[in-house]
Design a protein around this nucleic acid. Structure first.
Length: 344
DNA sequence: AATCTAAACAACCGCCCGATT
DNA sequence: CAATCGGGCGGTTGTTTAGAT
């Protein structure tokens, strides 16, 4: 038997709120408050036939004072991305770091724009990088071929395109797949900074020590003690002091969430790859081609701050070396003609 | 100008969790 | 201790709007 509905569905209005309804609800709450019971609230408001939950949502997302809509700044983008990577789709927590923003707003913004923006930047950068890299590799290979022993088989290699979900799962067994250096690079790219001395390694030690099955390890050092994920210039409080404090002790798994966020993103992107091979073009570096090559660690400008390399975190050793990948391919393979390289 | 498509936004649904009884 | 309830949250769907053809 299911739960009793919170209201009489037959007698409540659904759909978009009219300005009149907004005015009624706003006036009432400003005058009387919510009374601490949203379910009972609509019954007290004359002329408002709405479910209590609907009232709550409307008030929290649109009617309460100091709500900002749209016009997300680059800085806010950075914060959202950083936190998504850190804790996953905990929109309410992310929203708590952005004054005036609501979880619903951020969630929509992420799903409709930020995710695509991330992919777009990735493609743009890769198109250029790929062209020059390919040329370089081809030249190198031609040289190497002249030294190749006939019949020799290059060292064993997995297929060039990984099975994304499976690999994510396998991280459970192969924690070394989490390339610590890649994570560091990513976070730096995202505008993060590490504390001095040995503390910085605590994050990675902790990550590797945490199980991926969601179980918490309370004895571990919270990763937020060792890293300030966000730019020091960000108009927000540090992760240490606020983000952490907002996580209920029982729920916040620190590094688990970090990986959860990454995995979410990776699986999402992997889904894109699986569902639409055309999307693969441009995603190659998500599988680790260029994290090291990118060199610059500064997040100096929004444009240069290429989030796109996130996925190399998960698969740094799979196709992390373009040259190795190429060498693993049969010489007569049609690989180079495939869409892997995109339009020539 | 009309139609189609994709993007953006608003709202609902259902589940989970903690508080209360 | 179990049942119930409300609040809160994340995922998803429906609607509107903008842009392309």
């Amino acid at each position: 038997m299911g739960r009793a509905p919170c209201c009489d569905k037959a007698n409540v209005k659904k759909g978009p709120w009219s300005p009149e309804e907004d005015a009624i609800l706003k006036a009432y709450i400003e005058q009387h408050g919510t009374g601490g019971n949203w379910i009972a609230l609509p019954q007290k408001i004359v002329g408002l036939k709405r479910c209590g939950k609907s009232c709550r949502l409307r008030w929290l997302n649109y009617l309460r004072p100091n709500i900002k809509h749209g016009g997300f700044s680059e800085e806010e983008d950075n914060i959202i991305c950083s936190l998504y990577i850190s804790i996953g789709s905990r929109w309410s927590i992310i929203a708590a770091q952005l004054p005036g923003r609501t979880d619903n707003d951020i969630k929509n913004y992420w799903n409709t724009r930020l995710k695509k923006k991330l992919l777009g930047k990735q493609r743009k950068e890769q198109a250029a990088r790929r062209a020059s890299l390919k040329q370089e590799i081809m030249t190198k290979r031609e040289i190497n071929e002249s030294f190749m022993v006939p019949g020799a088989i290059p060292h064993q290699q997995s297929p060039y395109w990984p099975d994304v979900p499976a690999l994510v799962m396998n991280q459970n067994q192969d924690s070394h797949l989490m390339d610590q250096e890649s994570i560091r690079n990513l976070l730096i790219k995202l505008g993060g900074r590490f504390s001095d001395n040995n503390q910085e390694s605590a994050l990675f030690t902790t990550i590797n020590n945490y199980p991926l099955d969601g179980s918490s390890r309370q004895d571990q050092v919270p990763y937020t003690n060792s890293i300030d994920v966000l730019s020091s210039s960000a108009p927000m409080r540090s992760m240490d002091s606020t983000c952490c404090s907002q996580f209920p002790n029982s729920n916040y798994n620190g590094p688990n969430m970090c990986q959860a966020g990454l995995e979410n993103l990776l699986v999402e992107l992997g889904g894109l790859v699986c569902s639409n091979p055309q999307q693969v073009e441009g995603l190659d570096s998500f599988y680790g081609m260029d994290m090291a090559a990118s060199g610059s660690t500064g997040a100096s400008s929004a444009e240069s701050n290429s989030w796109g390399h996130i996925s190399s975190l998960g698969y740094p050793q799979l196709v992390s070396d373009y040259e190795t990948c190429l060498q693993s391919m049969p010489q007569d393979s049609s690989f180079e003609d495939s869409s892997f390289f995109g339009p020539q």
